[in-house]
Simulated assay, not measured.
Amino acid sequence: MVAGEASGDLLAGLLLQGMRKRWPGLQAQGIGGPQMARRGFEAWWPHEKLAVSGYAEVLRHYREIVGIRNQLRERLLADPPQAFIGVDAPDFNLDLAAALKARGMKTVQFVCPSVWAWRMKRVEKLQRSCDHVLCLFPFEPELLAKHGVAATYVGHPLASVIPADPDRQGARASLGLPLQGEVIAVMPGSRASEVAAMAPRFLHAAALLQRQRPRAWFVVPAVPQRRAAIAAAVRASGLKQVVVVEGQSHAALAACDVALVTSGTATLEAALFQRPMVISYHVNWLSYLLMKPRHLQPRVGLPNILLGDFVVPELLQGNAKPRKLALALSDWLDAPDRMRAVQEKFRGLHAQLQRDTATLAADAIEKVLQS
C-alpha cells in the first residue's frame, strides 16, 4: 500500500481496519503514516516523503520522489504481494501500479483521481494501471464505466467516522475553549508547502477578524511536523485568544462555528461536520499557471463540487488576501440563517456519503484477488 499524505494515511487506516476484519493475518507494507501504523502497517518510507503539492514544489523534490518509486517498484517486483493498493496520490501511484500490473500483479486504486475536474486523459492512465477503482463519490463509477474502468462506490469513510450531530460543547471543553461565544477554526493544511503559503495569510486574516470581534477565539490544528511553523506564524500575526493543537482537526471542526480551510480533503471534513467555511489556496505562481488551463470545473472545493453550486465562498490565488478572508468569515458569522441553510445541505451530503466503506471495499478487493 502507498498513502502519500495525512489525508491518505487517514483513509488507508480506515481501509486497513476493514481489511483486517476480513483477513486477520493480513500483512501490509509500503509507504504510510501513523494511522496506518496503528493498524499494523509496516512503513518502508514515511508518507511525509510524498506530501508535496504544486508543480514547482514537486519539481524541487522530483529526484527523491522518483528514486523512492523506483526502489519500491523493484522491491515489489522481487517479492510480489497479492495486491498493490494505491491510496490517493495518483501522480505517484498510477505509474507505479502500471508497472506492477504489466507484470501480472493485481492493482487497486482507492480514491478515484479527479477526472471530473481535470482533463479526462487521466482515465487512460487508470485503464493501464488499475484492475479496480474504489470510489468515494456516487457519480464516479458510472463515469469510469463509460471509459472501460471497473469501479465500485464505497462511500466516504469519513462520513462514518464523523458523527451526524457533532458535540460542539464537548469538543470545546476538550480543547480548552470557552463553551460560549464564537470560535473559528483556522486550517492552513498539513503539507510544508501549504503551511508556508497559507498559515501567514490565514493568521493575518484571523487577527483582522479579532479586531472586529474581540471576544472571538481561534483554534489551529497542526500536524506534529508543522506545529513549530504554525506557532511562529501565530506569533508573527499578533493573534490573541488562540489555541494551537497537535492533530485534533476533527475536534477543532466540531468545536468551531465557522472554518477557514485550505482547499483539499479538509473542506469535505468541514462539510461533514456541518460547518460553514471559507475555502482558499495560494500556490507558487508557476504551479498556478500550469494548473489553471487543466481545470475543467468552475469550482475547486469538494463541498461545492459535490453540491453543484458555490454554497461556500472560494477565495483563490489573487483573492486569497487576509482582508478578503476576514470579511468572508465575518459575513458567515453575521448571517445565522445562511449558516443554518448551508448546515442542512451538509447534513444531506453526510447521509449520501455514509456507507459501510470498509466492508464494501474489502468485498471489491476480494473479487479482484479472485479474478
Rank of each mutant, 00 (worst) to 15 (best):
F139L: 11
D131I: 01
Y153R: 06
R119E: 15
P157F: 01
A159T: 06
L136A: 07
G148I: 09
A98I: 02
T152E: 13
E140G: 09
C135I: 12
A99Q: 14
G148A: 10
V123M: 14
Q109C: 01
E140W: 03
A159P: 00
R103K: 15
Q109M: 09
C135E: 08
F139G: 00
E140N: 09
L94P: 04
L126P: 02
A97H: 02
H132C: 13
F139R: 04
H147P: 07
G148L: 09
C135A: 15
A150R: 14
R122T: 10
K121L: 05
M105D: 06
D95S: 13
V115N: 01
K101D: 02
D131R: 07
A99H: 02
R128Y: 03
G148S: 11
V161L: 15
F137Y: 09
G148E: 11
F110V: 00
M120C: 10
A99L: 05
R103I: 06
W118Q: 03
L126Q: 08
A150V: 08
S114G: 08
A97F: 02
L143E: 07
A102L: 06
L100N: 00
L96I: 03
D95H: 14
P157G: 13
P113T: 04
L126H: 11
K125N: 11
K106F: 15
M120F: 11
L143R: 14
E140I: 13
E140F: 12
S129E: 06
E142I: 05
C130Y: 02
L96R: 05
K106I: 10
A151W: 12
L158R: 05
T107F: 05
V115E: 03
P141K: 05
A145F: 01
L134W: 00
E140Y: 13
V123E: 11
C112M: 04
P163R: 04
G104V: 10
L158Q: 10
V161A: 14
D131E: 09
M105E: 07
A145P: 00
S114F: 02
V115S: 10
P157A: 10
A98K: 08
K146D: 07
